[in-house]
């Protein structure tokens, strides 16, 4: 057995009872944390202590804890998901921190994402963007033969790169304007690239970008903070592609 050196950390965590509560930072001490803990397990430990002390645990979103569902959502020391390249909070490990560190933990902050409680925000605005056109409305019929529609490999790859988006909203949290362009760009591109999605491409890009505004997201100013925040490495080339699709749609 390796010896388990433990660390003690100071956490400064955003606590807010509901959307109307002004909210404030509270300071906690995380004790007996090893480098093997994940960030969320570290919070589990802190919450256990809080519960034993009769206090409200820190409320945060999580589900798969293996980096694929997009539920976890925390801004750590100013960086969505903690700032480690292509890593969700649940995949961030305490070996990245050292004994005595002070860590700020905040929720996604954007007008379109009202805070529900503590670190949980309401991300249904992203669903509204999808509902506005993030689908194809073709009749699917029976199961089609594989390769009945031929798609060149580079095109399939490009669509797959866009489809990696897990809808976590870190791009919005990272954007100083609270814009949802990387998310929407990924969804618009994924469908516009493929033959099944091309038929409705013009209508789709218009209604999905309209939904962005109606949901209260800001506009893009090409800071590229979204790309730095994205745990799935979605490239801003998909924003450029969406801009191109939008221009094309004006003449469709």
């Amino acid at each position: 057995m390796s010896d388990h050196k433990t660390m003690t950390l100071t956490l400064i965590v955003w606590r807010q009872k509901n959307a109307n509560d002004p909210g404030k930072f509270e300071t906690y001490t995380a004790k007996n944390i090893t480098e093997h803990h994940s960030f969320l397990e570290m919070l589990d430990c802190v919450n256990e202590d809080l519960i034993y002390a009769g206090k409200d645990p820190i409320v945060f979103d999580h589900d798969c804890r293996e980096g694929i569902c997009g539920m976890c959502s925390q801004v750590i020391n100013g960086a969505p998901h903690g700032g480690q390249d292509r890593t969700t909070v649940c995949q961030l490990h305490m070996r990245k921190f050292k004994d005595g560190d002070t860590i700020y933990i905040e929720p996604w902050r954007a007008r379109a994402f009202p805070i529900i409680r503590d670190l949980i925000v309401d991300r249904s605005a992203l669903d509204k963007i999808i509902q506005a056109g993030g689908y194809t409305s073709c009749h699917t019929g029976g199961v089609a033969d594989g390769n009945a529609i031929l798609i060149p490999k580079p095109v399939a790859d490009e669509a797959m790169d866009a489809a990696e988006c897990v809808g976590c909203g870190a791009c919005v949290a990272g954007c100083p304007n609270g814009a949802a362009m990387l998310f929407t760009g990924a969804k618009v591109s994924q469908l516009a690239l493929l033959p099944q999605g091309k038929a409705e491409a013009a209508e789709r890009v218009k209604s999905m970008t309209n939904a962005m505004i109606e949901c209260g997201f800001g506009n893009c100013t090409n800071h590229y903070e979204c790309m730095a925040a994205c745990p799935k490495g979605i490239n801003v080339k998909f924003i450029a592609r969406m801009n191109r699709e939008f221009l094309k749609a004006q003449f469709a």
Partner: peptide, 23 residues
């Protein structure tokens, strides 16, 4: 409009790609 997109700023500012010029 964009200033309103994030009404409350983070306690810690850590920009990765934005520049003095872009901001």
């Amino acid at each position: 409009e964009n200033r309103g997109g994030r009404p409350q700023q983070y306690a810690v500012k850590s920009t990765q790609k934005a520049t003095f010029a872009s901001e």
